[in-house]
């Protein structure tokens, strides 16, 4: 069963800006799905349409088989939304915000209070439950929005850049939280600019650019398309020249070697050549996240072909 089906979705804003140019997308139930794209690509407009904050121009959207045109309330009841910008009342307390939100979904106050303890503890906000939201840090506000979105126990959680501006420690704890939620059966759609986040969390991915889906596949297949992977090697000594036959290489400085390994080549070949030249390698790392490399290439390629 599909958690989300989008057919030929178009959105033209007042003034003629064509934000969505007929996108088609499906997300299977239980999936952890990444919707990526550069700024202004149409990600937030798509999410806005799904959550009924943006009126679509045309097209069809179904959430767990409920068309938003004729059973909007049912469709909404399945969705939990974590928007990009803070959109809670800054003067209400943390617990009031999450309990009121549950009430809008028909969750009785008594049950909502019990759930608030569960989700505020899971997001490390329980100690702050009586603080006005304006007193929270940026990271805490992001977690508050996740706790709020979970209060009616949605089957589809949509997160629009949930970890923006959050430090790495909290980001990793949020990843763990989201992974656990997904394992419990909740379908998750994630947009993010942290591509390592998408790569480590998501199983399937769509890339949107200029209102069109330019890639829609599994993360594994997409990463398989990466024809070249760039590595940075930290060397143990000073080197003036290193020549490699197995791959393209460049000595960035006397201690750093950059190599581009093509698909099919192995690290063994690389290290054999380096050993033969008595080059000692202290450590190695990817120059960029693999998904990041692909993302940049796909978006740039899409723009070149459009030109």
């Amino acid at each position: 069963m599909y958690a989300l089906e989008i057919n030929n979705l178009k959105k033209v804003y007042k003034g003629g800006v064509e934000a969505l140019k007929g996108i088609d997308l499906t997300v299977k139930e239980g999936d952890f799905f990444a919707l990526l794209g550069p700024n202004g690509a149409g990600k937030s407009t798509t999410i806005g349409v799904l959550s009924s904050l943006v009126n679509k121009t045309s097209g069809q959207v179904k959430v767990f088989n409920h068309d938003i045109d004729n059973s909007l309330d049912k469709a909404k009841s399945y969705i939990g939304l974590v928007p990009q910008e803070f959109n809670f009342n800054q003067f209400e307390t943390v617990q009031q915000i999450v309990v009121n939100q549950a009430g809008y979904y028909g969750v009785e106050r008594k049950i909502a209070l019990q759930r608030s303890e569960v989700y505020l503890k899971q997001t490390d906000l329980w100690e702050k439950r009586n603080s006005p939201a304006r007193n929270l840090s940026g990271g805490m506000k992001r977690r508050l929005m996740i706790a709020r979105a979970m209060m009616h126990q949605p089957k589809l959680l949509i997160l629009d850049e949930p970890t923006a501006g959050v430090d790495i420690e909290i980001r990793r704890s949020m990843w763990k939280f989201l992974t656990d939620i997904n394992k419990s059966g909740v379908t998750i759609i994630l947009t993010t600019h942290y591509l390592e986040e998408a790569e480590s969390l998501c199983r399937n991915i769509a890339i949107i650019d200029k209102g069109k889906i330019i890639e829609n596949t599994s993360m594994k297949q997409l990463l398989g398309k990466l024809s070249v992977e760039t590595f940075i090697l930290d060397l143990d000594d000073d080197y003036q020249d290193i020549q490699l036959k197995c791959c393209k290489s460049e000595l960035v400085d006397s201690h750093t070697l950059q190599v581009e390994l093509e698909k099919g080549s192995t690290l063994n070949q690389l290290f054999s050549e380096l050993t033969a030249q008595q080059v000692k390698v202290k450590s190695m790392r990817n120059k960029a996240n693999r998904l990041e490399e692909l993302f940049v290439r796909l978006v740039e390629h899409g723009r070149e072909t459009q030109v």
Binding site: L53, K76, L81, N87, Q90, Q101
Partner: peptide, 17 residues
């Protein structure tokens, strides 16, 4: 204020007529 702070969205995304 709810419009200004955008917390009216809490209601708009919920299944509330």
């Amino acid at each position: 204020s709810a419009k200004f702070q955008r917390n009216v969205e809490e209601l708009l995304v919920a299944p509330v007529p």
